[in-house]
Design a protein around this nucleic acid. Structure first.
Lengths: 155, 155
DNA sequence: CCCATATTAATTGCGCGCAATTCAATTTCG
DNA sequence: CGAAATTGAATTGCGCGCAATTAATATGGG
């Protein structure tokens, strides 16, 4: 048996390469804004709710401080956010939009439009895909399985 | 207008966080094999067709030499592959499995089974998702759109 | 044959992602 | 109250991904 490629692997590679393609598609749209895609995600989170802690941002984006701390420092260096220790709890660092960071949302409004257009997918398909991927992601986050029955594999 | 999150952004984040979740799910399965997920992908490609050039591997995985060269050197250091300049065309580097690398496919056979199980998705759902993601990825790789009509956006 | 152009890998530099560790602040509990 | 446990962020180290550059080899036209 030549170890044929398994379908679950193929799905994983599809997701992997789709994500890279997304990144490449976002790059030229975000570069004029001075943002990378992960930085754009942080800005989306802050545009929705300003003044969140590093922990809260990390919970939303599923990222930890090892990723966020240097990223936020770059956003701060770019003048889009401020980082200040909380008064109540000095362990926390509260991230706030600067005026420039708030203003950036205007320029960024076109990004998802162009992206959705580049994908050329209908509203329904996008919504369905999003739900399935999110559901699978959350299931992956759980315990896993006891490797009992070989299931959902086979190319 | 508070710049509500757009659906296309949500799909992109779903794909982004799904891919990270996949990576986390693969890690404990691949760590005993001494592989990272991208290294595993290269091994899958080589198990399917041994003796490919860096270019060919890159075409299949959509990766360039900047990513592959150091990765392949690590696989070589780990004893799984050899890298040798081609005799016909000395620009090319041909990557071949070592005996150990070939033997690894046996141990790796269980990986997609466990992964598919952890996702807990049916064969049909997996196949459909894979097709859609691949189609979207390929569409993203193309020209894009003329930003005419706002379409496929809106949260 | 020779030179301009192409192609192929390797290299450099930067920004993630994440595990592991460290440190300070806070909470819990004896 | 005070020691231990917990929490939040920062730091370190490593492996991608990719743009940009470089170097070596191959190819095609004059």
């Amino acid at each position: 048996m030549t170890s044929a490629p398994k379908l679950s692997d193929q799905l994983c590679f599809a997701a992997y390469s789709f994500t890279h393609a997304l990144n490449r598609a976002y790059r030229p749209l975000l570069e004029p804004l001075g943002l990378t895609y992960p930085q754009y995600l942080v800005m989306l989170v802050l545009w929705e709710d300003d003044g969140q802690t590093v922990k809260e941002i990390g919970d939303r984006l599923k990222l930890d401080s090892g990723t966020l701390t240097p990223l936020l420092k770059r956003l701060e260096a770019g003048g889009y956010v401020t980082r200040r220790r909380g008064r109540e709890d000095e362990r926390q660092v509260i991230v706030r939009l600067s005026d420039e960071g708030r203003a950036l949302s205007e320029k960024a409004a076109q990004v998802p439009v162009e992206l959705g257009c580049a994908m050329g997918a209908g509203l329904g398909e996008i919504a369905e895909l999003r739900e399935r991927l999110t559901a699978l992601r959350d299931r992956l986050g759980e315990a896993g399985c006891a490797v009992g029955e070989p299931e959902a594999s086979q190319g």
